[in-house]
Write a protein that binds this DNA or RNA. Structure first.
Lengths: 199, 199
DNA sequence: GAACCCATGTAAGTTGTTACATGATTGA
DNA sequence: TCAATCATGTAACAACTTACATGGGTTC
């Protein structure tokens, strides 16, 4: 049930509409926690019903956008969750489980999977690095907003944590890419041995 | 829908009961794909209804254990899935999302999370390394069974893929541990700066 | 006026968790 | 005989996905 807290956390930076949140949870925020709009809207309604957020229909854009703000009760519940121990979900890795049974495939098909794996994590890495650059340059919009609402002596901590999280994802992506490349080299040697064996 | 294929894959090594599968999916197999018995039993029933597995009540143990075996249709569907492109699930990282909002916590609470993170991945690493040692020594039971059922010239591939998958998990765990350690060092410097600031 | 973005929602279905329920066998 | 392990299941619920549905505003 982390979506709830991801939403509350998001709203501690600034009030936002469901649409706006959905955009970011499919974009920059989605690098940490993805959610679709059809999950976000009902969850915001539940949070409002529990008094953890309030909502107002804004007239400024003439479109009747519903803007959510976090309440003190919401902040309290968020802090409680932040301090609590993380419950790590069980491992479910669709690529590794495939690899284990991939001995039923031709080496060429295994190669395709490893190349896809590298490509997938290269795309993630590009996203992480782009965001990391913006954060380090101080041009990342959501971080600027978050810093603006906080005392100067906490700025190092706020920005540092964001960098840390991104750096962790960068490391992870690089580790997956390096692994896939090693795996491809190993596969070459297997294929060479197979050809030498004469088939 | 990978559980289905994880079960079919499991049964390509040897026929097994739901209980046996549940043990391994919470244990060695669980390092790649965890599932509980209450999910496994109904799924096996569905697979049996679709003719992808057959089941027989074994009398040998006097306990009426239901043993499932994969059918040619099941193997065909498994191979199809193995060759298909992996659909990577969206990122949902309960620790990183916490970290991003952790600027609302005291540094001591952040420290506790980073230490928990390191500990969590150290525990995973221990499991991966233990299994890797067994695989490399040739004493890992399920790998022995899988090799026994396959032609000698494929042994390198079968064992190699298993090593590869484990090595990937080892790399990932090490990357998380190294990251957590760097993060703890950074947190030290933040705390030192805070104390120097005088509070 | 067609296509696209803004904006919010519901409904049906799948996947996974937690708890409940049962009964046989084994070992201390 | 008590506890643990073996063995299979169901029910209720929570989380998430996909598809459907609607309507205003903007741009070509």
């Amino acid at each position: 049930m982390s979506l709830k807290y991801a939403l509350l956390g998001f709203l501690t930076t600034e009030p936002a509409s469901g649409y706006q949140i959905a955009q970011e949870f499919g974009d920059s925020m989605g690098w940490f926690w993805y959610a679709s709009h059809s999950q976000i809207h009902p969850e915001l309604q539940r949070l409002a019903a529990r008094g953890l957020v309030t909502s107002e229909v804004s007239d400024t854009d003439g479109r009747g956008t519903r803007v959510y703000s976090i309440t003190p009760a919401g902040e309290a519940e968020l802090k409680e969750w932040l301090a609590a121990e993380t419950e790590y979900p069980p491992v479910r890795d669709p690529e590794r489980i495939r690899l284990i049974f991939a001995d039923m495939l031709e080496p060429a098909d295994i190669r395709a999977h490893l190349e896809q794996h590298r490509k997938h994590h290269e795309a993630l890495l590009d996203g992480y690095l782009a965001q990391l650059r913006e954060v380090l340059r101080g041009t990342f919009p959501r971080l600027r907003k978050r810093l603006a609402a906080r005392p100067r002596q906490s700025h190092q901590l706020v920005a540092g944590l964001k960098v840390l999280a991104l750096q962790g994802n960068v490391d992870r992506a690089r580790s997956e890419i390096a692994w896939a490349e090693d795996a491809l080299l190993w596969l070459n040697s297997i294929e060479a041995a197979e050809r030498a064996d004469g088939c």
